[in-house]
Every structure is written in structure tokens, then in C-alpha cells.
Write a protein that binds this DNA or RNA. Structure first.
Lengths: 79, 79
DNA sequence: ATGCATTTGTTCGTATGTATG
DNA sequence: GCATACATACGAACAAATGCA
């Protein structure tokens, strides 16, 4: 994976992650209704805490870019 | 069972449980390749949530003290 | 061979406490 | 005070593996 979070950047970590995920999704890295990496995976890949990863996901959910299903995962919204 | 978790202790609940299980195992309470109580049993005996119990078990797995078999249970590692 | 119960595995949702800038 | 971030913990749902009747 190509997720890079800079803890010393001016931009908050949750926003860095949201930006990178948004870019991957809009670039077609994940297709409609396809699952994006789980919270656990994103925690491992970024080194961020669960709450921070969820904060990032919530940004994308509010934007309508993705939707989550409890117990299943987070998926790209169909266009 | 003699599992006592103090929710007000400084030590996290998952560590308390891991410590107590480790002590029982090393004391011979469970022999090699013998199953330790299931997640459900430990949840009932300690009052802890499933995730917390799993957290405790994962500590012992990392230590190599026990191993888990999906659908079967968690067993003491042979030495 | 089908179905059910048990058990572990994985996932998201939410909340609390602590610490830092 | 507020936003950010981490650690801990509970809850809920879904899934897969196993064993047995």
C-alpha cells in the first residue's frame, strides 16, 4: 500500500489519510461497491489509532464518497 | 473459576486477565495441548467484553504460551 | 447431507480517559 | 478552551471453521 502519514505535517493525520483515500478512490483504485481496507488494516498501514482512522473515514462518509456497513466494511458509493 | 478483574485498577483489564491466565498455565492449571476456557466462558467469568478477552488471549499467543484453532478453541502450547 | 451448536475471527459503532499543543 | 491523537473498553453484527447428531 502507498499510504504515508507525516505526523509532523501541518495537516492533521486524519485529514492526510482522508485526502489520500479520496484520491485513490476517485482515481479508480477501488471500484463502486468495492470495499476499502478495514480499520484494522488502515491502522496497521498508517500506524494511526483506531479513532483517528475512523475520523478519516467519517470525513469521506459525510462527503458521500463511501458508506459503511457494520460488521461488513466500508464501501465505495455507487455513482 | 478464580478470575478476578478489578475495573478500577491501574492495570488495564486485558492485562489483568492475561496475567492471571499466564499464572494459571505456568502453574500447571492447564496441561500441554489442553484447552483453556472459551471466549464465551471467559466473558461470563470476568464480565469483560469479547474484544477485551480476545485482546488478553492475543497477548499470550504472541508470547507463544498458547495457540488458537478456529472453531476449536485455545490450547496450551506444548513445551 | 443437512442442520445446528460452539468457537474463534473480523468488522464497524460508540464511549471514556488521558495527554499534548 | 479546543482540536488532535492514543489507549482502553463495551456492544453489535457478520463470517468461517469445527464437531456432532
Amino acid at each position: 500500500m502507498e499510504l504515508e502519514i507525516d505526523p509532523h505535517a501541518k495537516i492533521p493525520a486524519y485529514r492526510q489519510l482522508a485526502d489520500q483515500l479520496r484520491e485513490q478512490i476517485t482515481a479508480g483504485r477501488y471500484g463502486p461497491r468495492e470495499a476499502i481496507p478495514s480499520l484494522t488494516q488502515l491502522m496497521g498501514e498508517t500506524g494511526l489509532a483506531k479513532g483517528t482512522v475512523q475520523h478519516a473515514i467519517s470525513v469521506l462518509v459525510k462527503e458521500g464518497l463511501v458508506y459503511t456497513v457494520s460488521g461488513r466494511g466500508t464501501f465505495v458509493s455507487p455513482k
